[in-house]
Design a protein around this nucleic acid. Structure first.
Length: 841
RNA sequence: GCGGGUGUGGCGGAAUGGUAGACGCCGGGGACUUAAAAUCCCCUGAGCUUUGCUCGUGCCGGUUCGAGUCCGGCCACCCGCACCA
């Protein structure tokens, strides 16, 4: 006899232990079933699992469990993206060691994930902060160095002069250090780079093969790589020098009214040597923000160097050369020809400094003198452009490039927006870069047999700066080449490096090398990768680059790491706030502190109302967070999982609500009551229910494979209602068993318990997805909409496949149709078979 | 600023160019109960002159027999912008 209510507090743990004991989620690479590699982006161990993680991993889990039920050998691993700044911040703020803090968090979060019943292969767990992981990363980095994919050069960092520390962009607030409040300076340091640009064309071309990636992500990457074809050419300057500029619009060369260089361009620096106003201007630019967003939103500012540039088509024409804050040194040559008529940035600059704005492209020759109120980037024909007049934009581009090449002052050139990847971080909690600096031999790689270069444990975070630099002994080593005194590299690798190959390490974990080539060949590519849209560009591009780099140096034979990608939305929640009467700043309250009703919300503490604010991404600062553990404790893992899948399409944001999770808890119990009605002694057929059953199996499978979990959930609801209403029969019992199977990827604990109680053998987690009888999918009647002039007037229920003429006759015979027609003459009748009739009068 | 996305009832959403609002939440009514919880049933886009009609998918316009869906232009919000992960 089964209990009245399903009790997750004891059932969840029992089945989780049963899965562990059966080791049913460990991937067997010797299996001859078709493989399926399901991977969710691994989490940063920040402390506790966030509800957003729960959503991400629930989606992957449903797919992994479904794939296992449909006969696949599934690899569904989990690990920890364990290096990063928060551990160092915790060390500084709480006096804990980054390693201790990180491993403690991992233990906590692992227990939380276990409580949710995810079908993960924990035998392959990795933490990137473990030397057994990052040691192999160091080896791969050295391999890339040997292959010429790693180099060093000067590059700017944000320097906090008070804390004597390099700051990340997010640590710079309004141009000041977040801790010290000091004005941040740009400082040049020698840093390590990976040559991602060597693969620019391949990374771009590869996007075309990624059919199962969202179009938007491919577009974003394409724009990020930013291939552009244009003209690089040389201006002769009035001071006797020359200046190389790059333009994607050589056709507009007659519209150029000035030339601009980046503040850190050599020409700008040369001018600053002799002109202190220029030096001050450059100083001002350096004090500003470093990010592209800040540069481009800042007011356009320039400094006239007094130098003139000779127009290549008109030796008498001189263009003033400016230093301008909106020109980027990293793109092209760091210098541009500015065409205000056809580039909005140039337009704003020209307006501000009173420079000429000339139209050189118009819709037609007659429009040559149409006034410009903003820059026009559209197509048209060339005007006011001497020899180019009348040409189209593409013709003029070709003509100018041809002229430059034949006259020897420039050449057509492909330029990429993509820049090489700076991987140096002046921080402790990361992978040590395995190099040694020797006064005699220069930069020397650490010999492979000396890997891993591990982090020293005795470090002091009470003072700012990189502890590796000031550690008493760690960096002092003998040069591997000459044996003389030398120093270790104290920079560590960007944490994006850790996440650029972890999916390979999951496939196999040999101790003596990063991965096994055959195992990688067996499991890769990842069949379904799931993560947040915020990783659309950087992480995914870096992982694609590492895959190419490792293939290039002969380590693997994988073209693309992720065959199919899915980007899920965020979990959001209402905010509850009051205005602080003293400063007008909002004071936030957590969901646990308030009492929510249909009328509004009141604070439990004082019973007075609070304002219900916008529904936004959960964040600690807004206190609109819920803790997954609390929810699992109150409603059980299955209700939480069900909520994560319900309602919102997975690619969109999911608003968490208390009433929503309560509804899910109720549905778990409702299913439980239905499951307990399973009776293998029942007899009799129920054709309609049988039809519904098979339609539901097919539709749910289709929905899960399309990751449309919200639709699969709706199918289960619908089918549940149908089974509940059906009178007892063998079909009904069969339907109940089917429902256990359909629900099992989403609500595995409930399903295991019910499966067991119904007397079935084995675990439902190892059962097969129920087969579909195609004959039962077809309906024999259809409902046809009848429209008059596009408006619905009636519906008809007819046999499926009824000939068009008969449908038309039935529609015209309808009383409602005749009334709507009101005697008007029928001009045309459109019949869509089995769907609709539209009568046009 | 640039690149990418999203917008449908009170709320989350469904809908191969073909019946807009499936399914769920909230709310309302009823049954059961001494009562409550739990459960079950019914109703639930707006308006109107209610056998039915009109309006309605962010806003403005277009294509079509027919537009939530396609095209053009706007608006709002979200994501990314290279040292957050």
């Amino acid at each position: 006899m089964t209990e009245q209510r399903f009790d997750p507090s004891q059932a969840d743990g029992r089945w989780q232990r049963a899965w562990d004991e059966a080791r049913c989620f460990e991937a067997d690479s010797d299996s001859n079933r078709p493989k399926s590699y399901v991977l969710e982006m691994f989490p940063y161990p920040s402390g506790r699992i966030h509800i957003g993680h729960v959503r991400n991993y629930t989606m992957g889990d449903v797919l992994a469990r479904y794939k296992r039920m449909t006969g696949h050998e599934v690899l569904h691993p989990m690990g920890w993206d364990a290096f990063g700044m928060p551990a160092e911040n915790a060390a500084m703020e709480q006096g804990v060691h980054p390693a201790g803090w990180t491993y403690q968090n991992i233990a906590t979060m692992k227990a939380q994930l276990k409580r949710l019943g995810f079908a993960l292969d924990w035998s392959r767990e990795i933490a990137t902060c473990d030397p057994s992981y990052y040691g192999h990363e160091q080896a791969l980095f050295l391999d890339m160095y040997e292959a010429g994919l790693v180099y060093r050069r000067q590059s700017a960092v944000n320097w906090d002069p008070v804390d004597q520390t390099v700051l990340a962009n997010e640590q710079v607030v309004d141009g000041r250090g977040w801790r010290s409040g000091a004005l941040v300076e740009k400082r040049q340091l020698n840093q390590w780079f990976l040559k991602i640009t060597q693969f620019a064309q391949d990374l771009l071309g590869g996007l075309g093969t990624l059919e199962d990636w969202p179009e938007k992500v491919r577009l974003m990457q394409e724009n990020w790589i930013g291939k552009s074809e244009g003209l690089q050419f040389r201006f002769d300057l009035t001071n006797g020098d020359t200046l190389d500029v790059y333009t994607t619009r050589p056709d507009t060369i007659f519209g150029a009214s000035f030339v601009a260089v980046a503040p850190d361009h050599p020409l700008a620096e040369a001018v600053a040597q002799v002109n202190c106003d220029a030096a001050k201007f450059i100083e001002k630019c350096r004090a500003g923000g470093t990010t592209a967003a800040e540069l481009e939103t800042a007011e356009k500012l320039g400094f006239d160097t007094g130098i003139g540039a000779v127009h290549p088509f008109d030796p008498d024409k001189r263009l003033p050369v400016y230093i301008a804050n909106f020109v980027l040194m990293d793109y092209g040559t760091g210098a541009i020809m500015a065409v205000p008529g056809h580039d909005q940035r140039d337009f704003e600059f020209a307006t501000k400094y009173g420079l000429p704005i000339v139209r050189v492209v118009a819709a037609s020759a007659e429009q040559a003198d149409a006034p410009l109120t903003e820059a026009e980037a559209g197509d048209g024909v060339l005007v006011h452009s001497a020899i180019l007049d009348g040409m189209t934009v593409p013709e003029a581009k070709r003509a100018v490039i041809a002229a430059a090449e034949s006259q020897g002052w420039g050449e057509g050139k492909t330029v990429w927006r993509l820049r090489d990847w700076g991987v140096s971080r002046q921080r402790y909690w990361g992978t040590p870069i395995p190099f040694i600096h020797c006064g005699e031999c220069g930069v020397v790689p650490v010999p492979k047999e000396q890997l891993p270069v591990t982090l020293p444990e005795d470090v002091d975070f009470s003072i700012p700066g990189n502890p590796l630099v000031r550690h008493p002994t760690w960096k002092h080593v003998d040069c591997p080449k000459c044996g003389g005194a030398a120093e270790r590299e104290t920079d560590t690798l960007d944490t994006f490096v850790n996440s650029s190959w972890y999916f390979l390490r999951f496939a196999s974990q040999p101790a003596d090398r990063p991965f096994d080539r055959d195992e990688v060949a067996k499991w890769l590519p990842v069949d379904q990768y799931i993560g947040g849209i915020e990783h659309a560009i950087l992480h995914l591009l870096y992982a694609r680059f590492w895959t190419r780099a490792l293939k290039h140096i002969g380590k693997i034979d994988v073209a693309e790491p992720f065959r199919s990608l899915f980007t899920q939305g965020m979990v959001t929640h209402e905010t509850y706030e009051r205005k602080n009467p003293e400063n007008g700043q909002p004071v936030y309250f957590g969901p646990g502190e308030i009492e929510r009703s249909a009328e509004g919300a009141v604070l439990k503490a004082d019973g007075d109302p609070v304002t219900i604010g916008r529904v936004i991404k959960m964040s600690k600062s807004k206190k609109n967070v819920v803790d997954p553990d609390d929810m699992v404790e109150r409603y059980g893992a299955d209700a939480v999982r069900w909520f994560m899948l319900s309602d919102s399409p997975p690619e969109r944001d999911l608003p968490w609500s208390e009433s929503g999770i309560e509804g899910c808890g109720r549905f778990v119990q409702r299913l439980w009551r239905l499951f307990s009605q399973y009776d293998d002694a029942a007899t009799g057929e129920d054709r309609a229910l049988q039809r519904k059953q098979h339609q539901t199996i097919a539709a749910a499978a289709e929905d899960i494979e399309a990751l449309a979990f919200n639709k699969a959930v709706a199918r289960v609801y619908e089918f549940t209602s149908a089974v509940e209403k059906a009178p007892p029969s063998a079909t009904r019992s069969e339907s109940i068993a089917t429902l256990m199977l359909l629900a099992s990827p989403m609500m595995p604990h409930l399903s295991e318990e019910a499966w067991h109680n119904a007397g079935f053998d084995g675990l439902v987690s190892e059962a097969e997805w129920p087969p579909v009888d195609p004959a039962l999918l077809i309906e024999d009647e259809v409902t046809i909409a009848v429209q008059v002039k596009g408006k619905l007037r009636d519906t008809l229920t007819v046999a499926k496949g009824l000939p068009q003429v008969e449908v038309e006759a039935l529609a015209l015979a309808s009383e409602k149709v005749q009334r709507a027609l009101d005697g008007a003459e029928v001009r045309k009748v459109i019949v869509v078979p089995d769907r609709l009739v539209n009568i046009v009068a």
